[in-house]
Amino acid sequence: MSTPADELKTAVIIEDDPEIRHILSEVLESSGFSTVSVGNGIDGVRAVLTYKPLLTTIDVTMPGIDGIEAAKRIRAQSDTFIIMLTGLSDEADVIAGLGAGADDYLLKPFRPRELRARVEALLRRSRSAPATPPAAPQGSVGPSFPVARAAISADAVVSAVGPDVPAAPDAPAVSAPAPADGEWLVHRDLRLHPENRVVLVGGDELDLTRTEFDLLATLLESKRRVRSKADLTLVLRGESYVTSYYVGDADKRAVEAHMTNLRRKLGESAANPRYIETVRGVGYRLTAESA
């Protein structure tokens, strides 16, 4: 049964190509979203701050500031899910986009079915309840349609980039609730609370993206059991993709990028790990309890 929250799902599309904006709108509206489409990065950042969308798509190469910078500015002020769009020849953009705070990516050309599958996987992941968005401008928000997706030709797919808006002042810090000790996942001086989504290192709270948090939680729950990059990809997507088609080399490189960002925030390196070690040719696991 649909709920009022379901009916308020909003997506912001930041794309300078009118045809691609239309394609993305149709795909997302078929999944129950109302869409707000903008043609440049400045308006894209403003739209995210105004409509507080559940999902935002950003292409990497629009005029003005690029999608990487747009993602950084949006992530600094919003917990919207971000999907970056990039060309097959620009996989370096995947790494940069994930480092900027994106949750997932799509290589162009993509199939509408794949976009919908990735969106559905993101929505299964934990997030804070979104604020109710204001009504979108006349003509910019599409109606909701049944969850069905029309096939779209590969060459009809994507090309965009990001915004150029000064970042708004940071919101005042809010102290996280202090959960009971028994609810924490602990490794050395690293503590993670799954429900409150709090991570502490030596008593200091870390600011992790949703994806970094989910990766760390998975490794803490797995302890010394090795988790492969393909396995971690499926975990991030709710293990809904059971075929190997969806876990390609680019997916594995995306996990590597998230792990690099996570290690940087933990203050460690792959060469001298304190919390997470790489098992070459396989994946990742926690380090031993003592050095």
Rank of each mutant, 00 (worst) to 15 (best):
E256H: 08
I276M: 11
T132F: 12
P134Q: 13
K52C: 06
R46K: 07
A176T: 11
T287A: 03
P134W: 13
L262M: 03
G281R: 14
K108A: 00
H22Y: 10
G41E: 00
G97T: 04
A178Q: 14
H187M: 10
L106G: 05
R285G: 09
D251S: 11
N272A: 15
Y245K: 15
L115A: 03
A168N: 03
V60W: 07
A167F: 03
R125M: 14
F213V: 04
K265F: 02
F81P: 10
V282I: 12
A257I: 04
E256Y: 04
L232V: 01
E205M: 08
A92P: 04
P172F: 02
P172I: 06
W184M: 13
D103K: 06
V119A: 05
A254W: 03
I58Q: 00
L55S: 04
Y105W: 14
A230W: 00
L107A: 01
V147K: 09
R188G: 08
A168S: 09
D249S: 15
D59A: 13
A270F: 10
T50Y: 02
S89Q: 14
L122F: 14
I82G: 01
F145H: 13
T287H: 01
G202H: 11
V45Q: 08
K9D: 13
P172W: 06
G139K: 00
T80E: 06
G182I: 15
K265V: 07
A291C: 03
L28P: 12
L24T: 00
L219I: 12
S89M: 13
R21Q: 14
G101K: 00
A173E: 10
V226C: 04
G64Q: 02
A291F: 15
R125G: 14
D66P: 07
V199I: 10
E114C: 05
I42W: 12
S228I: 02
I83R: 00
D231K: 07
A96S: 14
G203N: 06
V165G: 07
S144K: 14
M1V: 11
D90C: 03
V198D: 02
P63C: 08
D214F: 08
N196L: 15
L206T: 04
D170V: 09
A131I: 12
E212N: 04
T80H: 00
D43C: 02
E114F: 01
V279G: 03
D43N: 13
L24W: 03
L200D: 01
Y241I: 06
D17R: 10
Q138S: 14
A102W: 01
A217Y: 03
L54I: 12
L54G: 02
K108E: 05
K108D: 09
T61Y: 12
R116C: 12
L122T: 05
P53L: 08
L49E: 11
L49G: 05
R263L: 02
V38E: 02
V157R: 04
S222D: 05
A76Y: 00
L185S: 11
T10K: 09
R225N: 13
R125F: 11
I152S: 04
A217L: 09
T80D: 01
M1E: 15
